[in-house]
Design a protein around this nucleic acid. Sequence first.
DNA 1: GTGAAAGCGCTAACAC
DNA 2: GTGTTAGCGCTTTCAC
Lengths: 349, 349
Amino acid sequence: MRETVSGRAGGWRGTDAGITIKDVARRAGVSITAVSHALNGKGTLSAATRAHIRAVADEMGYEADALARGLRRSTMGAVGLVLRSLDALGDYTPAGVDAFERFVGVAASQSLARGLSLMLVPDLTRPPVPPLAFSLDGYIVTDPHRDDPVVALLEKRGIPYVTYGRPPGRPDFRHWAAEDDAASARLVLAHLEAAGARDIALVPGTDANAWNLDYRQAYLDRCAERGAAPRIYELPERTGVEGGAALAGRIVAEGVPDAVLCLTGRHAAGVQQGLTARGIGVPGRTLVATASDSEHARTSRPAISAVELNPVDSVGALLDILQALIAGEEPDSPRLTRARFRARASTRR
Amino acid sequence: MRETVSGRAGGWRGTDAGITIKDVARRAGVSITAVSHALNGKGTLSAATRAHIRAVADEMGYEADALARGLRRSTMGAVGLVLRSLDALGDYTPAGVDAFERFVGVAASQSLARGLSLMLVPDLTRPPVPPLAFSLDGYIVTDPHRDDPVVALLEKRGIPYVTYGRPPGRPDFRHWAAEDDAASARLVLAHLEAAGARDIALVPGTDANAWNLDYRQAYLDRCAERGAAPRIYELPERTGVEGGAALAGRIVAEGVPDAVLCLTGRHAAGVQQGLTARGIGVPGRTLVATASDSEHARTSRPAISAVELNPVDSVGALLDILQALIAGEEPDSPRLTRARFRARASTRR
DNA sequence: GTGAAAGCGCTAACAC
DNA sequence: GTGTTAGCGCTTTCAC
């Protein structure tokens, strides 16, 4: 049947394209195997045949069908991105949480530069599971928490994945990259101390991801060093600005600290609001800083000092690792990147 | 061969999963045809068989392979997103251009809610073309410009697509949605007039997309109505804040207008900076506003009044249309959504 | 009402 | 060196 242009796009969708390997083979006067080998640099073909086939294929504008190729156990040229923090938040577009939007943008552009497409995938463990989910070449999972089911699923399926932020409780897992949170924490704390703060309160989130855990540990270490009593106020990420504002009351009631370090920008904005509303001046009476820069931090008055993540380097490292894994190589990992501290008015004395 | 669990994941990747239709068929004691029909609601099966097959499939955790299914001309459950403005900018993560990051986030979350995956795809007309690009069910193309090659390619391929913003020069094309730019333009202009502005300059970008064109037209209409002389300063989008700052010199040289309306937030921030640097007070001496809210607009001092886009409604409309197209139905389109004007200090008298 | 069989476009053994 | 052939997992005629 069908002796003209064969294939899906031929009789299926449009008018053009849908040129198949068959068409190229016929036109080049060779077998489809030859075409496949020529275009994939496999097998043993004479340089001449190879060149000829390539020329014909180019001329016809042939593009191998990714589906058929994928079906044959090759790779799809696409990786998935799962944002666990947003899964946890239950909202994929929370206002003012631009760190993730930036991460997505950077991930998309860098994937592209490496010839990969990026597919945004929601929590893989909850239906409806996106059809292509298990056909992707690999995954980037951001901020997995302890015993993360998404990680477990990928593991079970044998799908290569890397995590942005070490998966807590998995000391043997090495395929991750992240900013050096412990170093960032020391940086902020040193800055606060330099501004005269001694009694520093920490406001971490409740997700059990490496970010929360590592900051907390660095904070505790510092307290131990200084002989200071730790003051930790856990606050669920989802409570946002309001949660921070409400928490300010409790903090004040227990004695105004010299500084408050909030892990999320929204909490920091809320805490600062709450403090100010209670007559506690920032940075006059106490300092406020956040471990993740966000629009809320930048637009608060005074502007809130913040650790600015480094999505460009982190995504680059993650893709390096992931591509190595997909290629079956042993990646050089984990990799730590450097975040920057942005001193703003909220900690300026 | 292979009488255990067959299939790709079986002998290919992991340990688990990769349950194929064959496995289900064997376990249910029926043919694979029966399984296919039962699970897709096709063919003529007895209710009992159907139910039994479904039960077995569920129990086994069977998920049809999207690749194989796609190969057989079904749908992939995934749509592509092409951001033309960013293609034009040559930078997928420009600082402060958060409108697109928001759009991506909203598009991802809403697609998910409809059981679609979203794949970010770069300029389809430039190699390397992402392998899956032509296998996707449809596309959302944002801000296509006149004679857009991406649109032409999709058209030629017969791939369903919708555009965010009318494709200029294609009056017959109806599969688009967007904020009502003309209405937004009138809103801003009316606001500026209410603040006493009579001589208003317009700073559009140079991309020939509907957004630039429609604002310009609305502006010209207003000038005609009022008998005012139009003052238009075209400025390439990519020039960003610096471009705006530089332009301010030219604007001042030609006489300080009562107000400047910039289409991009970065231009507005730059123009305001440039004006201020030249001793032209904002909002004292002249007003500044932008047609697209951005971080630059919000964080400028004074904060710049801006039209805030409505990605939630727009993306919803786009997906409605796209899903209808994919289903072969005639969609209800085009659809206009409502943007909001945010009055800020830069236009407050 | 049910199932055998023919592919979708491609890759990879394995002959020639 | 090159081509034949057997599938990947699925959908879909078309016999039974």
